[in-house]
């Protein structure tokens, strides 16, 4: 157990520490100019100088990303169920959906500012828009992944469509859905930053943009550092939720040794 924990966390941590050390050394001997690449210590000093301010920006950005993600989950799952359950809707709407998705979302961002103003709403909308595609695709794929025997069984047992959906199809889809959620969650963070780049007075994207204006590279890096931590933490949280939501799946993986 102890060697396992060491293997799981110790070795990656060692890699990260070695990387930071090399970086610190490279900047200390003056191989890289601080305005291009500030040393890790100066980045941490920057973070420590105004922790409350950074925390405020981070909370705003995470809030936007999570609300956008939540919206994408609701809209994406409902849309996927609709197109899987009613093939006519699939033929009617799916090509349109693909076409809409192929528009670069960054290009739509200014439009959302016109529609929703300069508050949090347009950023949430952009985050949701970027995230929703992965959720629709993976949920639809999952709903189609029911083994034929189980569908035959459901038919013989004369289950209603709602029961087949809720007792069989949704459970079959869950592992696929979580794979989509993970992609979507990372993308919603990207969407939040994109939204803040276009117009904002708040958030980590705003912090990066204003710091860039005054060539405050350590502050840019500090914000990026927080963003990368947030990304890891959010995906980690989703992993925990997945394990709780799919207990049969987790035990199966353990049983087969994965």
């Amino acid at each position: 157990m102890q060697t396992n924990t060491l293997k799981r966390f110790g070795i990656p941590l060692l890699g990260a520490l070695a990387f930071l050390l090399l970086w610190e050394l490279a900047t200390d001997i003056g191989a890289v100019r601080p305005i291009i690449l500030p040393s890790p210590s100066s980045i941490f000093r920057e973070l420590a100088s105004e922790p409350a301010w950074f925390a405020e920006q981070a909370v705003f950005t995470v809030g936007v990303a999570l609300l956008g993600f939540g919206l994408a989950v609701i809209v994406g799952v409902v849309f996927a169920i609709a197109i899987v359950e009613w093939p006519l809707l699939d033929r009617l709407l799916f090509p349109l959906f693909i076409a809409l998705n192929s528009v670069p979302k960054v290009a739509i961002a200014p439009l959302f500012i016109i529609w929703f103003g300069t508050g949090a709403e347009p950023k949430i909308a952009i985050a949701a828009l970027i995230a929703v595609f992965a959720i629709v695709i993976d949920t639809a794929l999952g709903l189609h992944s029911v083994p034929p025997d189980q569908l035959d069984l459901a038919k013989v047992l004369r289950g209603s469509r709602l029961k087949v959906l809720l007792r069989i199809k949704m459970y079959c889809a869950l592992p696929h859905m979580f794979a989509g959620f993970k992609v979507a969650l990372s993308l919603s963070l990207v969407g939040a930053i994109v939204g803040e780049f276009v117009s904002s007075q708040k958030g980590l994207g705003f912090a990066i943009l204003t710091a860039q204006g005054s060539f405050d590279t350590p502050r840019v890096f500090a914000a990026i550092f927080i963003l990368s931590l947030l990304g890891v933490a959010l995906i980690g949280a989703l992993d925990v939720i997945e394990r709780m939501a799919l207990p049969w799946h987790a035990s199966q993986r353990k049983a087969t040794g994965h």
Partner: peptide, 21 residues
């Protein structure tokens, strides 16, 4: 293939015909 539903307990699987019907 037994077509048991992995996400339900054995008892819940056996009760599926009563539930669906």
């Amino acid at each position: 293939r037994d077509a048991l539903l992995d996400w339900f307990s054995v008892l819940e699987n056996v009760l599926l015909p009563a539930d669906f019907g």
